[in-house]
Design a protein around this nucleic acid. Structure first.
Lengths: 198, 198, 198, 198
DNA sequence: CATGAATGAGCATTCATTCAT
DNA sequence: GATGAATGAATGCTCATTCAT
């Protein structure tokens, strides 16, 4: 029997890698880097813990890789807001709904964990430092300005408006992401009051 | 030196206990139960780690005791809102400002950690389960209803209004409590737009 | 392509086996049995690590096989001294030069490792026990006696003379075999002073 | 009951430290850094493995500390040769006897292991690099020159003579240090032939 | 009451070995 | 025959907890 050819091996490797990263994202996002045991990731991915180390050299590397991915993904998502259909307000409503969903939260929570936990690799600290709200504010700036000119949004410094609004959303994501029963997630329209002109 | 009498010993015990609990609250609130090492608490309290075990039988017991305290305290704080001076809106503004300060956060964060971390003792899980937003909603209900009647607050189901507003505040507290540079903390007046009539 | 016939397969097997043993000798001799990873041997032999197990059932078996080979080979080399050309002294000088070269050392070092390392299979321990200097002394005895009679070598118990001389040579081989910069390897003529009459 | 006072604690710490270092030296010297398990050291020192880490932060640090000690000690021993009583030849004979004893060997073997093993900390590599035979040659140089002038020792470049002689001694120490049955340790007078004039 | 030395369970990581292809 | 993905036992190290003093 011939050994597997390159393509097959490559495919297996890619699949496993994705499988591990998916499992790791799930666990890291919920429990942080210290609270996550490699055995948890292995169990979540249904593989042996030894195999993790064929794909990632360490817990740190795995965590770092995920954080990088998360940063790219969340920026892409934020970028795509501009191209949504409808008025500026409708774009922001769509973004808000997206964020309040739990779908996007693992990546967000991973970054939150990276910000707030101990035991975070030095490299991640540097990545995080460079990854502040400023970038998101800049991405949303054109949409907000257009909304203000159209009279849909409240007047005032648009950057501050965006930053404050995103902070509110971020806080809610943190509450939402973990399986917390105690809170009530507001609707998008409730939150939009913060930025719409009466 | 004469040996200390019972009363003095008792006083020392109480002081030490407070000292330890203060230190533990500070560390647990920031780092969670897993991220906190008993040696950190001992260092923060400037005592030997061995001494911790004269006052608390385990890390779990210490954590549990603090969570119970935190629940009582935060309810008391919330209760006191009714007795603040001024109109309902002014009361809520004062509460909002209080919450956005970092001063009240350790107890809140401790409960947040208890909700979201692993390694939380079973007893704490049960306490938390019983400690949902409903109680706070009930406490604030009279104030909100009065505000609505006075036309200061938006109409609609007051319980839902309170729950949504508290969720927003809670999310911001979580962001605020940890030393996170990336977010901008909104002002109280910005948030009050969520509940005031235009 | 027609399938390989039996003879070709057999030849491949033999070649691969030699290839693996050569690589393994090199690595084991330098790093010992514990310090040697199967992956090192595979890399040195330019094959996959899985293939090692088609030819040897375990690291232990591979090591043991090599030690047995080494014993046979080193005895053969020592035997050949008698048949070298020249006077006894010249034969011993040639042997000394051989030993001080690094060329003959892998087998010697393998045996040294087998003697001094942990994790050595029980079977090897027994082999080694039976493989002491006595055999070499016996092989060299005729040459030394002839040398003493010819007045080239110092008088005295020839067996003790040989054993002492071989111990000196052995010690130097150990130093020489590893890539140690700190020592100066003496010349053969320097060492021969130990056994030549003034 | 009062806690132990500083002096008592200090004494305990010192004793334990010595106890651990003695045990570690014994094991490291024989088995190298990779072959040595922390549990072996703990067992040898009759303490729990956990306690090792109260005194040394890692296997590497323990190894490094020992190597530094070994270097200082062996230089001191070599330095003391000049002050021995008797003629140069007698001093060298005494040194040779010392070295052939097994008493000094653990330190020597530790350095040998540091030179030849894998997994040696970077810091140790640097120490070793700076710790070559040159220093010992320099220390012995006055004694050898005096011996040559007195006609006791063979003529020729004294530095080369010393280096070659020390290499022979070093090789024998390596053989001698491990519990090897196969070799015969020569007597000092046998080895002195290498350097004495006929 | 107070200290810190001592213990051992638990987790990250390595590597010999197996096995599907 | 040959490959490399997969497994799990073994080992370094951490930290909650105990206990002699």
């Amino acid at each position: 029997m011939a050994p597997l050819n390159d393509e097959q091996l490559h495919q297996i490797r890619d699949e496993r890698r994705e499988q591990i990263m998916g499992a790791a994202l799930k666990v890291f996002a919920k429990r942080g880097i210290i609270g996550t045991k490699m055995s948890m990731i292995a169990a979540e991915a249904r593989i042996s813990h030894g195999l993790l180390y064929h794909y990632f050299t360490s817990k740190e590397e795995l965590f770092t890789t995920l954080v990088q991915d998360a940063m790219v993904s969340s920026q892409e998502e934020m970028s795509s807001v501009r191209d949504l259909p409808g008025s500026p307000l409708e774009k922001i409503r769509a973004l808000t709904n997206d964020i309040l969903d739990e779908s996007g939260t693992p990546y967000f929570m991973l970054i939150h964990q990276a910000r707030t936990s101990d035991g975070v690799p030095e490299k991640v600290k540097q990545l995080i430092e460079d990854y502040n709200m400023k970038k998101f504010v800049d991405l949303l700036l054109p949409v907000f300005i257009e909304g203000q000119q159209a009279g849909e949004l409240t007047a005032g410094d648009p950057e501050e408006l965006i930053a404050s609004y995103l902070s509110v959303l971020s806080g809610l994501m943190v509450l939402n992401a973990q399986e917390i029963g105690g809170y009530r997630m507001p609707k998008a329209d409730f939150l939009l009051k913060l930025i719409t002109s009466p």
